[in-house]
């Protein structure tokens, strides 16, 4: 059996495959964060909480109304997205004129409230969400068994990331969004409703987080804490990719997933800090991130 640095090749292939799956989650989450930061300038610390709420929305939908996984993929992001729109409308909107740190503190507070409320209702050990019948089982790849569900996550995330990139970079709506980011007052003078656009952007970013939550629900324990452990990593991913850069968020999400996967073979104890070490190095060499524009 062939090996690289004393590690058998099948093990490396397996870990790379798993890294790709995790990278897909990172990409999906950091994408929403990057969109929100790029267009609103808001550091959305509640992103992990919206991810968690997306997973719980799917769980509650199934338990209470019998809504299946496929409908949950549509309805949970919609419901959480509407919640996001309400938060933007009622709270965040008032903070655009002041320093970004206020928006950060507000969203951080909201995240703590959401976690606390869900903990008091569902408990800290969380709930189980079943894998949909259509996606049960696995492919035997020779070097590992890849559960069909994980392959689906990679596919779904790739499609969503590509769509989001396309909308923002290649459509008329996207060009207006980008223009409003550069100079909101000028764009408004052309008769475009900028506040509405900003509101919908926040809603869409939040809905992306919720979608990631629904995708994650069948593979991890749906617990109030599932977001807080992930959001810090995702922030690091966004910083590495370059704040506000969509391509940067997607690519660095995938690459960091792969690096983390390899760390789990080489030195497992470091697997939860490797992303931050890379973040520190990137900040030293390129303070604007790998894909960010120098300010």
């Amino acid at each position: 059996m062939s090996s690289v640095f004393g590690i058998p090749l099948p093990a490396i292939l397996g870990q790379l495959m798993l890294g790709l799956v995790n990278g897909s989650f990172y990409a999906l989450l950091s994408l929403g964060l990057a969109v929100i930061f790029g267009l609103l300038g808001v550091v959305n610390f509640a992103h992990g909480a919206f991810y968690m709420l997306g997973a719980f929305a799917a769980y509650i939908g199934l338990q209470v109304w019998g809504i299946n996984y496929w409908w949950a993929l549509l309805l949970a992001p919609l419901a959480v997205g509407i919640l996001g729109i309400l938060i933007e409308r009622l709270l965040l909107r008032h903070l655009y004129q002041v320093e970004p740190v206020y928006g950060l503190l507000l969203t951080f507070g909201l995240a703590l409230i959401a976690e606390g409320v869900m903990r008091s209702i569902f408990g800290a050990s969380g709930k189980s969400y079943p894998v949909p019948a259509l996606l049960q089982g696995g492919f035997n790849l020779g070097f590992m068994v890849l559960p069909i569900y994980r392959a689906w996550v990679v596919l779904a995330s790739a499609v969503v990331c590509a769509l989001t990139w396309f909308v923002i970079e290649r459509t008329r709506l996207g060009s207006r969004l980008r223009a409003a980011t550069e100079n909101a007052r000028l764009v408004q003078a052309f008769g475009i409703n900028v506040p509405l656009m900003v509101m919908c952007t926040y809603g869409a970013g939040v809905a992306l987080a919720a979608l990631a939550g629904v995708l994650a629900a069948p593979v991890v324990q749906v617990s109030p804490l599932m977001g807080s452990s992930l959001v810090i990593v995702v922030f690091a991913v966004v910083v590495i990719g370059g704040m506000g850069s969509i391509v940067g968020a997607i690519l660095s999400g995938l690459v960091l997933g792969l690096i983390e996967g390899l760390t789990k073979v080489v030195y497992p104890e470091a697997s939860n800090i490797v992303v931050f070490i890379i973040m520190a190095l990137v900040l030293i060499w390129r303070p604007a991130g790998l894909f960010g524009k120098e300010a």
Partner: peptide, 29 residues
């Protein structure tokens, strides 16, 4: 690490060892 959410890569290593028993020396979530 405590609080890991994705155990799949650790489990692949367990499987590759060929052992009969998977001892989970952890707790809670």
């Amino acid at each position: 690490p405590l609080g890991t959410t994705d155990y799949s890569s650790f489990l692949l290593q367990a499987q590759a060892s060929g052992a009969q028993v998977l001892g989970l020396a952890n707790a809670g979530t």
